[in-house]
Design a binder for these strands. Sequence first.
RNA 1: GUGGCCUUAGCUCAAUUGGCAGAGCAUCGGAUUGUGGCUCCGAAGGUCACGGGUUCGAGCCCCGUAGGCCACCCCA
Length: 428
Amino acid sequence: MPTYRAPRGTRDLLPDDRAVFDRLMRLAADLAHRYGYRPIETPLFEQAAVFERGIGEVTDVVEKELFRIAPRSEEAESWALRPEPTAGIVRAYVQHGMQTWPQPVKLTTTGPMFRYDRPQAGRYRQFWQFDVEAIGDAGPAIDAEIIELGYRFYMEAGVEGVEVLVNSIGDPACRPAYVAQLTEYYRGHADRLPPTERDRLERNVLRLLDSKDPAMAELNAAAPRITDRLCEACAAHFESVKAHLAGVGLAFRVEPALVRGLDYYTRTAFEFYVAGREGQQQALGGGGRYDGLVALLGGKPTPGIGFGLGLDRVALVLAEQGHVAPPEVAPLAVVVGADPDDTVTRFRVATTLRAARLRVRADLARRKLGRQLEAAGKDGAHFAVIIGDELAAGDVQVRDLQAGTQRTVPLDDLARELARAEASHHHG
RNA sequence: GUGGCCUUAGCUCAAUUGGCAGAGCAUCGGAUUGUGGCUCCGAAGGUCACGGGUUCGAGCCCCGUAGGCCACCCCA
């Protein structure tokens, strides 16, 4: 029983896990770059008010999941670890006057987020998101670009069975009326609401729509739909988003029950979902438009849209779908020696090869040659450089561990020979 | 935050109605001392998650705690 362990809901990404994340993060960076989004890095923590104001005081994320940092006595600031990246990025947009940059400002970041949830498979207190934001463009085309970018991430990552769900949740012009109507509808059927659902009626009516309670199915099917109650501007925007998606052949499903957990969303909401897996962590990512957020955080009224994709869940689903981690890049050569104690020479030869920019491991453990070669084989190294008595004549043995062949090479030619072998290996 | 199931070596798992904690893999070492993969031999590795209780005796029964998982809640 270890004395110390990783905190609840966190985990260590061991080299094999980290290799998967590396690949995903490289793909994320490459895709964002391809689409013209520039990397940004904001702090892992912010003034708590950034999240309280931005995300909404009465959301679950702020009410019960925010990782608050106890303020030091001499400081008034109340801080919290970021539960999502958008609020911090928008804060940076306002702070640095990005409204004077060419609009829209297209930004991306990938990193850990923190939520004080009860952990489960695919649900962690520290989790990684690939995030993309376009701030300063109200048009529907950018919505489609972002949705398509997110979908492409899953495709290029190799995730199978990703579905794209889209909806419009209206704006301040039409949503209040819809919410009122929906509240009235459910109140009229209050006697049919399970107790837990009755609580949500007053807190967040929209949440009733995506209830998993079977008792709600019939009631929800007959509930008024936001897509039927959008104002003219929102309806036109939504139609255009769908037309843009159809224009690039991207399959999507309109899901009227798709609502978002954070207050700042307006109009377009979307989610990437993978069906048919064990467990309920089927939402791989999601996002939406947040036309009110910049103003909420002290900037001029500025539209924005973005998404966050959960890398932990992508890694989980990839593993479930049978995708294995890419093999670690094995060293080109391992320097071994007949004299177990002569680590000086092994270290020196390896250093020379590394200076020639070759990927070389030195076996510095004091074990006999057979064990050194065994370890080199397990490493997957292509060559073993064997140092023995030939060194007196300025030679070493170079053994091809895959072919089982071996030949004498002058130490002076070693780097050149290995470099040539590596080049021909890569091109052959 | 609610309920349920689970926790034995680094990993995957055994252990009779309560009666001396084991295997495979991995690790390290050996097989007449300068050659890996195969094979054989050996070693190390455990507070049976942690803390109490019952009992002559607890990995096994009871209570609590922690962690994991599942369903909620929520979301990525």
